[in-house]
Design a protein around this nucleic acid. Structure first.
Lengths: 142, 142
DNA sequence: GTGCGTGCAAACGGTTTGCATGCCC
DNA sequence: GGGCATGCAAACCGTTTGCACGCAC
């Protein structure tokens, strides 16, 4: 998805919610689109500040939550009480492996797993809205 | 695993950590062993209170965290900021499907998925310590 | 008897919110 | 010009922690 498409997706989202396109919201979207990491709100906030954009922490939280609601951003919960966000169109769908020793985050993807979990949900009379699949791992000692 | 075995596992854990077996810790273990749900600390706390056991919220938090460390209990993070705990030997390993409409929690298990994720970790030079696999679902409309 | 455990309440930390002012539409 | 958005700081809420007293070993 091009940056232009994302912007219009964001504009549609705002319209749907009766919200306005402010320069703060734009700065936040820009920052997220041009970043591939898995970042906390505070990191996004700090980078915006470093870039000379004046946006408050509160606005980052508020905006990121809109972006999540409209599927532009994905929220990760790694079990340490701090939410991470990643840009959803930076690449295809994937899940995460987290190294408990280094904190490194490795992305993975398995069509097989996706199919099986769809099947399991269906067998139970459900359809999947979203899923979390995280492997907490450590390096294999040689 | 029988209740007796769990108790001795707990006693070993306490010994390893140089901790004492107090009546509060016992009450909490009892309550968890005889319960199959996915409960928050506060629910455990309330039930203990209802059962006439005097245990403080702080002690519930402290004990549950020991139980988790020693694999007697499993911690679930459902993304709402409140941790749930389930007794690990109530049944075999499983993951969770959460209905976003009712909050109902359905357990599921797939050997296939377990194998694939082990393989993926291994291919990346890691071994899995634990994993989280949650499907957020909604009922299929007929 | 000693030192960890407990209960209480206060602290913590990420996130949310109320309010007065500012700015998009 | 009207009303939502912003920024600030305070509130929030689940969880953790410091401290003084109590109990297991």
């Amino acid at each position: 998805m091009t940056d232009k498409k994302v912007l219009s997706k964001f504009q549609n989202a705002l319209k749907k919610e009766n919200l306005k396109l402010t320069k703060q919201r734009l700065s936040i979207l820009d920052n997220i689109v041009s970043n591939t990491g898995h970042r906390e709100c505070d990191e996004i906030y700090d980078q915006l500040k470093a870039d000379g954009k004046n946006v408050s922490r509160a606005t980052v939280y508020r905006t990121v939550s809109i972006l999540e609601k409209y599927g532009i951003v994905r929220k990760l919960e790694l079990g340490d009480g701090r939410a991470r966000y990643e840009y959803k169109y930076g690449q295809g769908h994937h899940d995460h492996m987290i190294c408990v020793e280094t904190g490194e985050i490795i992305e993975f993807m398995s069509d097989e797993i996706e199919e099986i979990q769809d099947k399991i949900a269906k067998e139970n009379g459900f359809e999947i809205i979203k899923h979390i699949h995280q492997l907490f791992v450590k390096p294999i000692k040689k």
